[in-house]
Design a protein around this nucleic acid. Structure first.
Length: 835
RNA sequence: GCCGGUGUGGUGGAAUGGUAGACACGGGAGACUUAAAAUCUCCUGCUGACAACAGCGUACCGGUUCGAGUCCGGUCACCGGCACCA
């Protein structure tokens, strides 16, 4: 029998399309299991080879859970709003909705081609008005609770996309999406107050099963720090407040610094003799992008505010104030105290401006660099009542004192900023608000949702930074829902991240037209039991959706605090680097590659890209080897969490394995049960594969199946043996498994498809052999192995070991002083020369 | 700079402190074949020309242990994230 994968896959996909064996049943009595993968952005390029890795892994988990008797929800959808589609539409003069529809069709074809067990009746499309109606609804609830607000502030502005970006979308000073320069621009923007949830977003991480690096990254991004706000009196009338995590170093303060953007400067301008200088510095700082300020300005700059004096409350001494752009307006109070002895930035600034450097913590050499004490062995000096304390003791002691004295209080700060939520683009959810001259911002009434995107002639972004929709005066001019007077609609749209912030809830009840999700459906399916997605979404989608979910919890839409019980993450699939130095022979060629491509040339594998010509298209792989081979290979490629390199050569190995499996059909004897000779092997394999699947160790599970098949080739096998193999193969390679299941008569025998059968069980007793091979070591060095009955005692094992020639030789003239026995594993004989 | 991770054959990768290199790719030999492909069987860490055998081997240096790829301390390299967050 030949393995005709094309015909087999077509046959089974058609059958599944008709019988829908993957439908999830809300309210079913079986235990529920909700497995979720990040829905794709349907790009024009189609499915990338990176998509099948997480999709296949969770498809296998979902299939295994069904075999374990769970009612599984494994849905898919499309995150279809976004700039690439809009840009494509602009370039080709096609409406984004048409482009989107086309791309979704192509993605759907490709996903079905790979045999995923998605419930296709629950597909979510974020651009569908029946969906974004509820995205708008959730936004309005936030607006009503005061979490959505409009603020004029400097924002990240992508010069190419002509659009604002959230902090999370700016990577190394450039636009995450297009790589263009990001500048700061004053703009009035809708904001979401994610910072109000900052504490909960940190604290609730303790209660979920996310891989550690996700938790760590989220904690770092939110950046909670507990410190003290200290008030310094000034000679300018008003006192100023600084934030510090090192209240213990207050005695070491020799100056203070204010951010160039600080509003207080304007108030003081008339009383600052060198105001011209200060103003020039402000202008200079404003011209720099954030990136420049961070990257290029390690060299400290600043201007002393002449005439300004502030009083250190700990010492009662006056110190000067400077303006410098190393102090950020957006964090703390925008003013910091300078402790050059124990903060490296302050040290650099003080050194440059010739300010005194005072040692208040003993242990370093503050003439060379700041001494940033971290442990509790560092001792305070020159610090009044703190002298002799450790840093660890001094921080709370000073904090307590400052509070008692009335010039200090405990304060928690976050690096997390509120979420800039408006975009000046067409292809997004319209923000459903109306601006009335009398009533201010008024929500579009809920019964008028969805607020549909208007039809426009041109989606081109405008140079003045307004949304293309702003030109649609018919749409923009409306009446105020509150007073009936004339008013204007908000023309900004929501960011790409809006639709994905709650999509997992919609899957539970995809066609509901009275609520985002019904209470019954949410209480049955929530929370997501296992969510897998890319690390690149850790501080974007994952954080945003946790925030939205917590809000929905607060307003009673969902019943759990966290949306996802478990989060795992897959590594990227890289392509071979065509410019890798290892590809060429001679030294000259290598040098030429390094000269041309730099460090790039030293990496054997790099991100796939069109320009490098190393992109692998799943369509091609499926055409050449079949979907099952594609699925198997992408799982066998390596550790799921690590990056892996695609290899066209290695794919063949997976195909070969499937051929070998298929050929077993002709080799199997008629014996219906598990054969005696393979019994132990099969039970061991079931045990191994079952355990590996739960830990997402697909590569070693497949290796165990391969080893079992290799044994079958040596031992022969029964029909019953093959039955067990088919069941275990079923989640990995569903098409071939069903074909074999039917061919061998199991479908007729059980009246079920393999995927509907219970997962094979193993008998622990049958995984244990009567005899074991044990390692024999002399002084820790391996000398050979012995085969002994299971659970042999020390005497028996030593006797067997001593019978080995090598052991005899090695122990000749030696005295045995100690024996270490690891039961059924190894014996280590410790010997020394006899006297 | 800070946080997190990784480092194992020609290659991808396996190994609860207990026989390093499972499984696979590639390579070699044989069988089948007029021949090739495919398939099947065997071999394949390095060095000592081969075998027996011996030595050396998990980035590097040191430690703990009867025993370390695994644990501890230090160093180096690479990857990811954050980056003047006071």
């Amino acid at each position: 029998m030949k393995y005709d994968f094309a015909a087999i896959e077509k046959k089974w996909q058609e059958r599944w399309e008709q019988t829908k064996p993957y439908a999830a049943v809300t309210g079913d009595k079986r235990p529920k299991f909700y497995a979720l993968v990040e829905f794709p952005y349907p790009s024009a390029a189609g499915l990338h080879v990176g998509h099948p890795r997480p999709y296949t892994a969770l498809d296998i988990i979902a299939r295994k859970k069904r075999m374990d008797g769970y009612n599984v929800l494994f849905p898919i959808g499309f995150d279809a709003f976004g700039l690439p589609t809009e840009n494509f539409a602009i370039k080709n003069h096609i409406h984004p909705a048409i482009v989107t529809k086309r791309n979704i069709e192509n993605f759907t074809r490709q996903l079905k081609m790979l045999g995923y067990s998605f419930d296709w009746d629950r597909v979510v499309d974020t651009t569908d008005p029946n969906y974004y109606r509820w995205t708008q609804w959730i936004f309005l609830q936030m607006f009503k609770k005061g979490l959505a607000y409009k603020a004029t502030m400097p924002v990240n502005w992508c010069t190419s996309c002509k659009c604002v970006l959230a902090n999370e979308e700016v990577v190394e000073g450039v636009c995450e999406r297009c790589g263009s320069e990001v500048i700061r621009k004053e703009k009035s923007q809708w904001m979401l107050a994610i910072t109000k949830y900052a504490d909960r977003l940190v604290d609730d991480l303790d209660g979920v099963d996310f891989i550690d690096r996700v938790k760590t990254q989220q904690r770092n991004w939110i950046g909670r720090s507990t410190g003290t706000e200290v008030t310094f009196q000034t000679n300018m009338g008003k006192p100023v407040t600084v934030y510090t995590t090192r209240a213990d170093t207050l005695f070491g303060v020799t100056y203070t610094v204010i951010s160039p953007e600080h509003p207080l400067l304007k108030e003081w301008r008339d009383r600052i003799p060198n105001w011209d200088e200060v103003e020039a510095y402000q202008a200079q700082a404003a011209r720099k992008s954030d990136f420049e300020r961070g990257e290029l300005n390690k060299d400290k700059t600043g201007v002393r505010l002449q005439g300004v004096e502030v009083t250190n409350p700990a010492t009662g001494k006056a110190v000067p104030m400077f303006v410098s752009d190393y102090v950020l307006m957006g964090y703390g109070t925008g003013i910091v105290m300078g402790v050059p002895g124990h903060d490296q930035r302050d040290w650099e600034f003080a050194t440059k401006f010739g300010l005194p450097i005072v040692e208040v913590v003993k242990g370093g050499d503050i003439t060379k660099e700041a001494f940033v004490a971290k442990d509790d062995t560092a001792i305070m000096v020159n610090s009044g009542f703190l002298n002799g304390m450790s840093v660890k003791e001094a921080i709370p002691a000073m904090k307590k004192y400052a509070v008692e004295q009335g010039w200090g209080k405990e304060k928690v700060n976050f690096k997390l900023r509120d979420w800039v939520f408006s975009r000046q683009r067409y292809w997004g959810e319209p923000i459903p608000l109306v601006n009335c001259p009398k009533c201010g911002w008024v929500p579009v009434p809920e019964d008028q949702l969805p607020l549909m995107l208007p039809q426009v002639d041109s989606y081109e972004p405008t140079d003045d930074g307004e949304s293309p929709i702003s030109k649609m005066t018919d749409w923009v001019n409306t009446t105020c829902p509150c007073c009936g007077g004339s008013a204007k609609r908000e023309t900004d749209t929501m960011p790409q991240w809006a639709g994905s912030s709650w999509y997992f809830l919609r899957y539970m009840d995809a066609h509901n037209d009275t609520a985002p999700v019904s209470k019954e459906a949410e209480e049955y399916w929530g929370p997501v039991d296992w969510y897998n997605g890319g690390m690149e979404h850790t501080t974007l989608h994952l954080l945003y959706s946790r925030f939205w979910h917590k809000f929905l919890y607060d307003i009673g839409v969902v019943h759990t605090v966290e949306p996802y019980a478990k989060r795992t993450s897959h590594g990227m699939i890289l392509g071979k680097n065509p410019h890798y130095v290892g590809n060429v022979e001679t030294e000259e060629e290598k040098q030429a590659l390094i000269a041309k491509y730099g460090n790039q040339a030293l990496r054997p594998a790099v991100k796939m890209s069109k320009s490098l010509g190393n992109v692998v298209n799943p369509d091609d792989v499926v055409k050449a080897y079949g979907a099952d081979t594609m699925r198997l290979y992408i799982m066998f490629i390596g550790d799921f969490e690590k990056t892996a390199t695609w290899s066209d050569e290695a794919v063949k190995g997976s195909k070969r394995f499937l051929d070998r499996c298929f050929n077993l059909q002709d080799m199997a004897t008629d014996e219906a049960g598990i054969s005696r000779k393979n019994e132990s092997l099969i039970h061991k394999t079931i045990k191994k594969v079952t355990a590996d699947l739960d830990e997402l160790k697909m590569n070693t599970a497949i290796a165990a199946l391969m080893a079992m098949v290799n044994e079958f080739y040596g031992n022969g096998l029964s029909k019953g043996d093959l039955e067990q193999l088919i069941l275990m193969l079923s989640p990995f390679v569903p098409h071939m498994a069903e074909e074999m299941w039917e061919n061998m008569g199991f479908a007729a025998k059980y009246g079920k498809m393999a995927m509907q059968m219970p997962w094979p069980k193993y008998d622990e007793a049958k995984t244990i052999d009567a005899e074991v091979e044990m390692a024999v070591q002399i002084n820790g060095k391996l000398k050979g192995t012995v085969v002994v009955p299971l659970n042999s005692d020390e005497a028996a094992v030593v006797a067997a070991a001593m019978a080995l020639d090598k052991v005899k030789k090695a122990t000749e003239g030696m005295q045995l002083i100690k024996t270490i026995l690891v039961k059924n594993k190894l014996v280590n004989l410790i010997v020394k020369p006899a006297r």
